[in-house]
């Protein structure tokens, strides 16, 4: 009897060890498990903890446009950011302007600069690309081994703009409104097209009305 009990205990220990030593998982689950990066969560945290605080030190749009005309090299070296090597650089800006027209894909805004009125496009339809991700210079490429994670961050940041920045602004904005904006823009350092500056909005407000920014 004692011997049987001992064997039983021994078998139980073996079964316990064996059960906890071997795991069966579907290959799909294992593959998915290696890609645990949550782009949406990262983008939401980045938006509130890095990007919007960085707007406090972003240059004034009028100042940047003047500098791009008078000393483009300094403008690019001081304010231009990018994670890639090459000619494409991104800038964060804050500005004020008067709405000239509200169009299908953008809002046209005139910004007062030293050199006169400068027309810019606030993108409202085509919110794509890496401008918002890269313009603050707050993301270190070496923190990411996988380029698809970086692509996901851009896509999620752009989605925040589509979902939370634009709807309330577009519902109210009209020609003649005075607006305050913060945003990101892309310029080619070698061939900067200053005649067509397009800003991806990060924060928008009309006159004295409440700011249209994500909660």
């Amino acid at each position: 009897m004692k011997k049987t009990l001992r064997y039983l205990l021994f078998l139980l220990v073996i079964a316990f060890v064996a059960y906890n030593s071997v795991y069966f998982k579907k290959l799909d689950e294992v593959k998915a498990g290696t890609d645990l990066f949550n782009g949406r969560k990262f983008a939401a945290n980045f938006w509130s903890q890095k990007l919007t605080p960085a707007l406090a030190t972003a240059p004034d749009a009028a100042l940047l446009f003047d500098l791009l005309k008078t000393d483009p090299e300094q403008a690019f070296s001081k304010y231009g950011k990018s994670m890639s090597i090459g000619n494409i650089k991104y800038f964060l800006v804050n500005g004020r302007g008067i709405v000239q027209s509200v169009e299908e894909n953008q809002v046209i805004v005139d910004v007062n600069t030293k050199a006169g009125s400068k027309r810019v496009l606030l993108a409202t339809e085509y919110i794509f690309g890496n401008a918002v991700r890269d313009a603050s210079g707050q993301i270190d490429i070496n923190d990411f081994g996988n380029s698809s994670d970086l692509n996901a961050i851009s896509a999620e940041l752009n989605q925040i703009i589509r979902d939370k920045v634009l709807p309330s602004f577009l519902a109210k904005v009209k020609k003649g409104d005075e607006i305050t904006f913060s945003g990101a823009l892309e310029l080619n350092q070698k061939y900067p097209d200053l005649a067509k500056i397009e800003i991806i909005p990060i924060r928008l407000s009309i006159d004295d009305s409440s700011e249209t920014k994500p909660e």
Partner: peptide, 10 residues
């Protein structure tokens, strides 16, 4: 060295 160094496409 950066493990991945992207080069911008225009």
């Amino acid at each position: 060295f950066p493990k991945k160094m992207p080069v911008a496409v225009e």
